[in-house]
Write a protein that binds this DNA or RNA. Structure first.
Length: 485
DNA sequence: ATGTTC
């Protein structure tokens, strides 16, 4: 295990690095991990999380979750909340893929009915949802329509025949974050994004057909609240983000922030921590543009849901409504937004950065869809395409401890290059098929990079959050079909 | 993650 001077164990799965660890730390850092996961974390995570703890206006702690790994400036699996007046906003704390996120859709189908149709379903979805680097979508919108999408995300989609009325309320923030400002988006970003609606992208993005996995976890009493009533029920999970649009916005503003830091006299330990005061012109402009990317990502996943409904309708010869293809929920992984949290006994509006981390709001929060409000917000944890995923719910403890946040997935343990060296894509595809996972991928190298062995054990990550009490298990899901970017 | 090294 990496030796970190002064790090102390706070509880079974919580570790704290004090401000004495390095000069300039404003708050301590906290890491959520079992001993096993902590031992596997690279030194970069500890350096990065303590760098984040040194940023102006950071409150309480800089967090690294159980799935944390080295990222651009901030660790992936990181959470940091900032004071609105004295704090900063940082693209490195959000990620290039703004509002990369997960969406879970239920069906009323059971495994036996879907099994013989998996290939047909996956092949059709592979045609309907363009996957891979640089792919274009099938949605044609004008610049002014694209600006409406930047402002209203899922709401625009639902009003324009790409969704159902109740889709909007089943997405984090009601399907769009307020404060989008399309005038702060470069024409270069717009021209990349306008053709990318309804596309999956590449890397670890996927569209997956899944089935409940009672051998790992199934709590029927909790699950029924989400319309999951059978131990072999089929669901669909989508993992993707804002594509080249968010990436371009991130790149644009990193350049702006380079200069802004000099003007505002901000010194950071690492150039990748580029940031600007949230109240500054540069900080506000980036926020307005970044929210446009977040809303485009919500809309992107929404158009994909529309395609999923089309595909199921075609393959099962029933209307999407009759197949109960409702969105259970949609969560952001990479975003900063204004949220109210209790701090030192009073409620305060804060700027919460989550990068490779999931919101995990506890029971009763007004932002949770009414049918689940008293349970907690659905938390969707995506594993690798071989090992499966989880549905969890947020807790009151997460509200108290982590600004209502938890982990987001399994996290890589092996570099993409190492995975490609070790694994042959076509062999992996055959092996997965023999294990009952029919996978279609844009490229075989891309498939090899996403092999299950390149990722941490998802169950260990989920167990950490469960022991910590920052989210609670509802159901485990295993893949039966996968479309890979 | 990314018109995968503007």
């Amino acid at each position: 295990m990496v030796e970190i001077t002064g790090m102390k164990q706070v509880s079974e799965v919580v570790w704290e690095i004090p401000t004495s660890y390095k000069q300039g730390m404003v708050v301590p850092a906290r890491i959520y991990a079992t001993k096993k996961l902590l031992g596997g974390m690279d030194r970069g995570v500890f350096e990065q999380v303590t760098n984040v703890a040194s940023l102006p206006g950071i409150l309480k702690y800089a967090y690294a979750m159980a799935d944390a790994h080295w990222g651009y400036g901030f660790p992936i699996g990181g959470v940091a909340a900032f004071d609105m007046e004295k704090g900063v906003i940082s693209p490195g704390g959000i990620g290039f893929d703004v509002n990369c996120g997960m969406r879970l859709i239920r069906t009323n189908l059971r495994f036996a009915e879907v099994k013989p149709k998996v290939k047909e379903l996956v092949d059709l979805l592979f045609r309907l949802v363009p996957a891979g680097v640089g792919v274009k979508g099938f949605v044609n919108v004008s610049q002014s329509q694209f600006e409406e999408i930047m402002r209203f995300g899922v709401k625009w989609c639902a009003e324009n025949d790409y969704g159902w009325d109740d889709d909007v309320s089943h997405v984090e923030e009601g399907g769009f974050i307020k404060g989008a400002d399309p005038s702060k988006v470069s024409t270069q970003a717009s021209s990349r994004g306008i053709r990318q609606l309804g596309t999956l992208g590449s890397g670890n993005h996927y569209l997956e057909i899944q089935v409940v996995d009672p051998s790992r976890h199934f709590d029927p009493e909790l699950a029924k609240n989400f319309g999951i009533v059978h131990p072999d029920q089929v669901l669909v999970m989508i993992h993707c983000g804002s594509r080249g649009f968010g990436h371009q916005i991130g790149s644009d503003y990193l350049r702006v922030f380079d200069g802004a830091m000099k003007r505002y006299g901000i010194n950071v330990r690492d150039r990748e921590l580029a940031c600007a005061p949230f109240t500054s012109k540069e900080g506000g402009d980036y926020y307005g543009a970044m929210v446009c990317a977040a809303n485009m990502a919500f809309a992107n996943r929404q158009v994909i849901v529309h395609r999923v409904r089309e595909a199921f309708k075609k393959v099962f010869h029933r209307e999407a409504e009759a197949l109960d293809l409702h969105i259970i929920y949609d969560v952001c992984h990479n975003v900063a937004k204004s949220e109210k949290h209790r701090l030192n006994g009073s409620e305060k509006e804060l700027l919460v950065h989550r990068k490779g981390a999931t919101r995990s709001f506890g029971p009763g929060h007004h932002d949770i869809p009414a049918p689940y409000r008293q349970l907690g917000q659905p938390v969707i944890i995506g594993g690798s395409m071989e090992t499966g995923s989880y549905l969890l719910i947020g807790t009151a403890k997460a509200m108290e401890e982590t600004f209502g946040s938890t982990a987001h997935g399994s996290g890589r343990t092996m570099s993409r290059t190492a995975a490609k060296k070790q694994i042959r894509g076509n062999e992996l595809q055959r092996s997965m098929e023999s294990r009952g996972i029919y996978v279609k991928a844009a490229t075989m190298d891309g498939l090899a990079e996403e092999a299950g062995v390149a990722y941490k054990d998802i169950s260990e990550v989920v167990e950490t959050m469960s022991i910590a009490g920052i989210s609670k298990k509802v159901v485990a899901l295993r893949p039966i079909g996968n479309i890979k970017g």
